[in-house]
């Protein structure tokens, strides 16, 4: 057992999978340069020395290296692609959506695309183009599995599950949760460390997890918002409101079994999402709740999300953009009192 942050846990997870299976390799920008960073957030630091020829630094060519990952996966390799910033996924989306996601179906079920795409997201003082919450653009794509990891334990376990899965899996990570150290440390980082077992383990790609039990209101979140939801629950507890906090974690598919079980208990739900409210994953979850367990609701679904604007730079504006603990508390409180 050891205490690790997300960057370290991912690094160990990648290394262990590469040791276990010679078809696993990493591909992306600045991930294995000697004297470099090990990717923008240190996840692959030191791996190029450990695995010569299997940490592949590419030109700045997101569409190209993503397509190469798809092609290599089709030929029996298990690539872990590293998108330096999630925002660059727009450049790569043709290969992800038109090729990776559809290849199995178009081929009548004969082709496997066992690839992983890792991407950091989140508003972190970088303005509009290194900040977007990208998961919404991929959760509605049939053929892709989409997960979002908020703890080091989940990061390692879901990374391993994704590598071993025979389908394309996108893993979204939050820049404020990595726990990257040294020059790559993030101001405003949130502690996402976990106790990591010494033995091998995986975390399923299709299950939400209850982080805190409660009976008055359910708060759903993922990535940074799962942490803020837990902090909000602490405050609500002091007011006598017992909030159940669920880290949705698996964004495609969404685990309505776990969510539904909670709603049958609380009858009330706040969905928290970093990212513009319109067209967000929270909209899908809200609709899914109506379909799967709408008869459990005692009050309308409430969403706490970012306004429909690009991510601003100014810290004052950025903090107003990103849902915070106070907004979550206020929303949950008024819902619990309905």
């Amino acid at each position: 057992m050891k205490r690790q942050g997300i960057a370290e846990a991912l690094r160990d997870g990648i290394a262990e999978e590469m040791m276990r299976d010679s078809s696993v390799f990493c591909i992306g920008e600045d991930i294995g340069v000697p004297g470099g960073w090990g990717g923008a957030f240190t996840v692959t630091l030191g791996l190029s020395e450990k695995f010569p020829g299997r940490i592949i630094d590419t030109p700045i060519a997101e569409l190209g290296f993503t397509g190469m990952a798809v092609g290599a996966a089709m030929m029996g390799m298990r690539p872990i692609a590293d998108m330096q910033y999630g925002d660059f996924l727009f450049l790569a989306s043709d290969q992800l959506i038109n090729n990776a996601a559809k290849m199995r179906y178009m081929s009548g079920g004969t082709i496997k695309v066992p690839m992983v795409m890792r991407a950091p997201i989140g508003a972190t003082g970088r303005g509009s183009q290194h900040a977007q919450s990208m998961e919404r653009y991929f959760t509605g794509v049939p053929g892709l599995k989409v997960v979002a990891v908020s703890t080091a334990y989940d990061a390692k376990g879901m990374l391993k599950a994704a590598v071993r899965d025979d389908n394309p899996v996108m893993i979204f990570e939050h820049k404020l949760l990595y726990g990257s150290k040294g020059a790559r440390a993030e101001p405003g980082a949130v502690d996402a460390t976990s106790d990591i077992p010494d033995e091998d383990y995986v975390v399923p790609l299709d299950r939400a997890v209850v982080r805190r039990e409660g009976k008055h209101v359910t708060i759903l979140g993922w990535l940074l918002m799962a942490h803020f939801a837990a902090q909000a629950a602490e405050q609500l507890a002091q007011e006598g409101i017992e909030a159940e906090v669920i880290d949705v974690r698996s964004l495609s598919p969404i685990d309505y079994e776990t969510i539904g079980a909670s709603l049958r208990k609380t009858g009330r739900v706040v969905i928290v999402e970093e990212g513009p409210k319109t067209g967000g994953v929270s909209a899908e979850i809200a609709a899914g709740i109506m379909e799967h367990c709408g008869d459990s609701l005692q009050a309308p679904v409430v969403r706490v999300a970012s306004p429909d604007v690009p991510v601003p730079f100014s810290p004052i504006l950025e903090n107003a953009y990103r849902p915070d603990v106070a907004r979550i508390v206020a929303a949950a409180r008024s819902l619990a009192q309905m």
Binding site: G67, M68, V70, G71, P79, Q95
Partner: peptide, 10 residues
């Protein structure tokens, strides 16, 4: 084209 390059990389 990137797909074929990836197959060749494999």
């Amino acid at each position: 084209i990137p797909l074929a390059a990836g197959m060749a990389l494999a």
